[in-house]
């Protein structure tokens, strides 16, 4: 788990974002290419590479989904960019309904005074779903049982749909209110 080591934080799904922020600044300061401006070409190149790695690590560690996918990949469960489809009828049925709800929010839009409460209700729903699949991840990813990793992978796949709903909601809010 190179990224965790790079940031000197424990290998855990649950992270302290503030700590990550502090470590990031320390690492960037130490690696900044300007500090190596007097060095050889090779040293300069290494400094640039190091900076890029620190940035990649930050983006991965601070984002809950990317962090989970990274940890799974390090455990040998590669789900990034996989082409496999998800076939869980109950889950997908619920996704369909939520997408329909989103459509309704967009359709009634600013015409209805109720749109704020509809959005608030939708956000609560997404948050519940997010919790349902996220809360177990810490335990599953800390386990040494491969079955638990597969379970974690399944949760992460479902979380991707939940995050997609979040993105869609944001897009609709922008459409409705940014005029």
């Amino acid at each position: 788990m190179r990224y965790f080591e790079l940031f000197s934080i424990p290998v855990n799904y649950d992270v302290d974002l503030q700590e990550i922020g502090v470590r990031y600044l320390e690492l960037q300061r130490a690696a900044h290419p300007d500090r190596h401006s007097g060095g050889s070409e090779r040293e300069k190149l290494l400094a640039v590479q190091k900076t890029a790695e620190i940035n990649d690590a930050l983006q991965t560690l601070k984002h809950p989904l990317k962090r989970a996918e990274y940890m799974l990949a390090e455990l040998g469960v590669e789900i990034r960019g996989e082409q496999q489809t998800l076939q869980d009828p109950m889950f997908l049925m619920q996704q369909m309904e939520l997408r329909e709800e989103l459509e309704d929010i967009r359709a009634c839009g600013s015409a209805s005074g109720d749109v704020d409460s509809a959005i608030a209700r939708f956000e609560r729903h997404i948050k519940e779903l997010d919790g349902e699949y996220s809360n177990e991840l810490q335990g599953l990813l800390a386990s040494s049982d491969e079955n638990d990793w597969q379970k974690a992978a399944d949760n992460v796949r479902k979380l991707k749909f939940v995050y997609k709903l979040k993105d869609e909601l944001e897009r609709i809010e922008d459409e409705l209110f940014d005029e």
Partner: peptide, 11 residues
């Protein structure tokens, strides 16, 4: 038939 693509969240 219900299917979803985790890669993009399409259903």
């Amino acid at each position: 038939g219900m299917v979803g693509a985790p890669a993009c969240g399409d259903v």
